[in-house]
Write a protein that binds this DNA or RNA. Structure first.
Lengths: 292, 292
DNA sequence: TAAACAATATAGATATTTTCGATAAAGGGA
DNA sequence: TCCCTTTATCGAAAATATCTATATTGTTTA
């Protein structure tokens, strides 16, 4: 009997089904089954039973809930022993795109769990963020970049970020139709990895340059694109909502883009403040759950 | 942080050193180190410190003890949920040799942990025990046997049992000196696997038969051997104490015997009463610890 | 002051366990 | 009956725990 199995049990009681518990805990459903079977094996009988498609606790299960609550209570108190040490400042540098789509929920959770930490978030281009990290102005930097391989930092690859072309829904569906037209390529300031990637893509495939409109925020780019002035190349994560709601549409294209990944980086050193440590831990936990 | 790590921590506090805790828990010492390092990692600081070769709790460690006691308390209450179901009868058949040397401490532990179970132990030869198991008179049977391979039972090989020749200390040291002399071969009733094994050994190596003295109990055999009447072939485990204390001595011999193993067997079926289940579990735990 | 010792730490190899992914079975509802 | 949702099963892959052997550290002894 392991703590994680008790947590699984308690979660099922809360959410009412194995499947939901799996989703909530970031496991697959078969793992939930295995956890409960392990418990039932040790306890010598079932803790759940089914009555009319509904999950119910058995008598044994009902007895167990209270005891598990006690145990998990002690466990959480032990976990909290550390939290008081998690304080001070946490300085993060991240590009706007990542901040909004990926970091949002993580920062929320972090702020809740470690209220003693003052979070300082700066939005810059990926190159800026890297410099900030190197010269010690921030503790953690996030980047979007093609393949990365460096010894200067410890880095964690987070997601593969698909770069997509978007335009207003009434515009042409296929990117080929834009070639040679006078639509704008709407983008952000230079130094942004997917802008570089897109421009290299044009050269490689002998596509003539577009007129470029440079804007200073994601929101501005999206609005201008939605107004029909041109198209933009952006990470899918930043425009998923707009595509779903029909404000923008994703263009089809013959050649797919080179892969871009999101990274989290810290300076190479063995020791980080607890605040930084816990942040890294939390980010990696989120990643693990999402990618499953 | 896992329950086993908390148990390790609590044990160290009790016994005062990593090394002793390892012995008590049946781990190696490096495992203890790993457990504590894992805890300290999570807790963000050391729980033990050394002052003058003495192990002391840090402040953090002292805080932890109480909380761990709570947690382990809940844990034990959960474990006990099952124990009330462990009752009824447990019928075991084992040869005398195994009962005394191997089963003693296990039965003691079992009786303590599951006082509701009535243990019935019968001592017979290995062949008898097998029959008893097959016809359902007992739940578990123990045997000493050379290599075993059968589908009739579920069997667990426990130990390799070295068979040794013993005689009184004042007798000759080497078995060769006994050949052709009028010493007795002191043994127990037929049907015992190491008696069979020894007699086959004699034939195989063209050693003339000895006069045989058949006794009904291990203790009787040992006493007669100690009195100088002859020698006996017995599993080492049954005479270890006597050899150490000088009551008997182990004879040297050119050819070593065929290996004999101790086995635990149950009838092939998926379901055993909780009492039987728990017994099997306990035996296997003991084996694991001892053989490490 | 070095040598021997006792306790804990470290590193690589091995063993075990956990988790996943795909698929099957079970229980309802249409 | 067929479909849909939920849980169970099974083999493979990944992650983790433990062991063995050896190093390190601090202490006592010669």
């Amino acid at each position: 009997m392991e703590i994680r199995q008790f947590i699984t049990f308690r979660t099922i009681v809360d959410v009412g089904s194995y499947t939901n518990a799996a989703a909530k805990l970031g496991y697959t459903q078969s793992t939930i089954t295995a956890h409960i079977q392990a418990l039932e094996q040790q306890l010598g009988g079932p803790v759940f039973s089914y009555v009319k498609r509904e999950l119910h606790l058995t008598d044994l299960g009902r007895e167990l809930v209270g005891m598990v609550d006690e145990l998990l209570g002690s466990y959480q108190r032990i976990e909290k022993l550390n939290d008081s040490k998690v304080n001070g400042e946490l300085k993060i540098a991240a590009p706007e795109s990542l901040t909004i789509s990926r970091l949002g929920p993580i920062l929320k959770e972090y702020a809740m769990q470690y209220p003693e930490v003052k979070i300082k978030l700066s939005n810059g281009t990926c190159g800026d963020n890297q410099k900030e990290l190197l010269n010690g102005n921030v503790d953690v930097a996030f980047m979007l970049w093609p393949e990365l391989d460096t010894d200067k930092y410890v880095y964690h690859k987070l997601y593969e970020e698909e770069i997509v072309l978007v335009a207003a829904p009434e515009k042409e569906d296929h990117f080929d139709a834009y070639k040679g037209m006078d639509d704008c390529y709407i983008t952000n300031e230079e130094g942004c990895s997917y802008r570089v990637m897109f421009e290299e893509h044009l050269i490689k495939h002998d596509i003539p340059k577009f007129q470029t409109m440079e804007l200073w925020s994601l929101d501005a780019i999206k609005q201008v694109a939605a107004s029909g002035l041109g198209f933009a190349a952006l990470p899918l994560m930043t425009v998923e909502k707009e595509i779903k709601s029909g404000i923008l549409k994703q263009l089809e294209q013959a050649e797919s883009f080179k892969s871009i990944y999101s990274y989290m980086m810290v300076r190479e050193k063995n020791w980080h403040s607890p605040a930084v440590d816990k942040f890294l831990e939390l980010v990696l936990t989120f990643i693990k759950k999402k990618t499953k």
